[in-house]
């Protein structure tokens, strides 16, 4: 086997493959959540896997068009955007509802002492069922 640095140097002008021997399945908890929600929604029949692949492909192409180097490490960002798009497309939750809820979680986080579990109920403006 050739020395790795010689190999990578020879390939530098073309896009190098982001290599890493061992990597966790999910790098952050949110990646795991986004993945699991998608699998669960597909399982209950909200969309077919072909629809999902198409939607994810669109998100990836859009990100590339906007200059994302697309090294594979932003994959779950594209995944999340595709999931939001799909959920809106299927009439489950639109952008306005999600934005409102994001603001609620942000307030909840700020009202939660560091180290405590962040609960939506911690949002000072929280009302159940809102």
């Amino acid at each position: 086997m050739k020395p790795l640095n010689a190999m990578t140097a020879a390939l530098e002008p073309v896009a190098p493959l982001p290599r890493c021997a061992e990597e966790p399945v999910f790098r952050e908890p949110w990646e795991a959540s986004a993945f699991a929600m998608t699998v669960a929604l597909h399982q209950r029949g909200l969309f077919t896997w072909s629809e999902w692949a198409e939607c994810l492909g669109e998100a990836i192409r859009a990100a590339q068009a906007e200059g994302d180097p697309d090294l594979g490490d932003t994959y779950y960002r594209h995944w999340l955007l595709a999931l939001e798009t799909m959920v809106a497309r299927k009439g489950v939750a639109g952008a306005a509802l999600l934005a409102q809820r994001q603001a609620a979680w942000d307030r909840a986080a700020h009202a939660t002492p560091h180290g405590q579990p962040i609960l939506l109920e911690n949002d000072p403006l929280f009302t159940r069922g809102a």
């Binding site: 986004a34 999340l80 994001q102």
Partner: peptide, 21 residues
């Protein structure tokens, strides 16, 4: 004690989606 929690924009989006779903 001014310590409070922070969630990244991405984490906020995922929590929002999950809680709605």
């Amino acid at each position: 004690e001014h310590d409070h929690s922070e969630l990244s924009d991405t984490a906020l989006r995922v929590r929002a989606l999950e809680s709605v779903l």
